[in-house]
């Protein structure tokens, strides 16, 4: 990169004698020999090619490993990741989990690179197609599921499609992911953002002091990851 440090190599310039060609009337007919060779095209759906191992496809997420640090949300170039507070089996998850919108995602997988615990991963699944129905379009905005589950389905079906067939949304905020093999994942979305959502029903009658007290224990939970979260508040405000 530095001009001074590198010695200029000898430039070998080639002129007309090598570069120029002679026009020919006969040679173009040589292409006919390819009529008798095997075609290179792939006859879909009778033939198929496998994606390369470690092809950058859909995400997976180990919900137990995820610490909700929002590194993925900060690095995302398309801002496709939104932190989501979930409630599984009536218990609120201690940390928010990323929700990936494939309408925005560029599949750069920088979020996987920065994940400090290795919770976020990716699979080779790449089919980003639907029938075009309104409910189909909602499929591609999901909280990724466990990698083992996706791998299990890949072995079963082997066509690298999106692991969820239908996302059912109930009136009370419960989401049901109907997976391809018939399993269901059920959870409730409590809210979005880095701050834990306030519980509306159990909240005490409000005075200013008590409000602070309520918010404190919630913040204590975040202590081990306090620093990145504080830093994360800036971009989310932009």
């Amino acid at each position: 990169m530095k001009m001074e440090s590198v010695e200029k190599p000898k430039v070998r310039i080639v002129g007309e004698e090598k570069v120029k060609l002679k026009k020919s009337f006969v040679k173009p007919w040589m292409g006919i020999k390819y009529l008798f060779k095997k075609p290179v095209t792939i006859k879909i759906p009778f033939e198929k090619i496998e994606p390369a191992p470690k092809y950058r496809g859909f995400h997976t997420l180990d919900w137990k490993k995820c610490i909700g640090c929002n590194f993925c949300g900060q690095i995302c170039p398309a801002r496709a990741i939104e932190m989501t507070w979930l409630e599984v089996d009536g218990k609120m998850e201690k940390r928010p989990h990323p929700k990936v919108d494939y309408g925005r995602c560029t599949f750069c997988q920088f979020c996987v690179d920065v994940c400090p615990t290795g919770a976020l991963g990716f699979t080779e699944n790449f089919y980003l197609t639907t029938g075009g129905l309104e409910e189909d379009l909602e499929l591609f905005n999901w909280v990724p599921i466990h990698p083992d589950k996706v791998r299990e389905m890949n072995e079963k079906f082997g066509d690298y499609r999106f692991p969820v067939v239908k996302i059912e949304k109930k009136a009370d905020g419960t989401y049901v992911y109907h997976l391809r093999d018939g399993d269901k994942i059920e959870f409730k979305i409590l809210g979005y953002g880095l701050r834990p959502p306030k519980k509306p029903a159990s909240a005490k009658p409000a005075t200013a002091q008590e409000k602070k007290e309520v918010s404190k224990p919630a913040e204590k939970k975040e202590e081990p990851r306090a620093e990145p979260e504080k830093a994360a508040e800036k971009p989310s405000g932009e």
Binding site: M1, K8, P9, V11, I13, V14, G15, V19, K20
Partner: peptide, 19 residues
């Protein structure tokens, strides 16, 4: 050739020029 970067100083190749 004129402002080499990476490994190009060590590589041998020709620059075609026509008028």
């Amino acid at each position: 050739k004129d402002d080499p970067y990476y490994l190009y100083p060590e590589l041998d190749f020709e620059v075609p020029v026509l008028k």
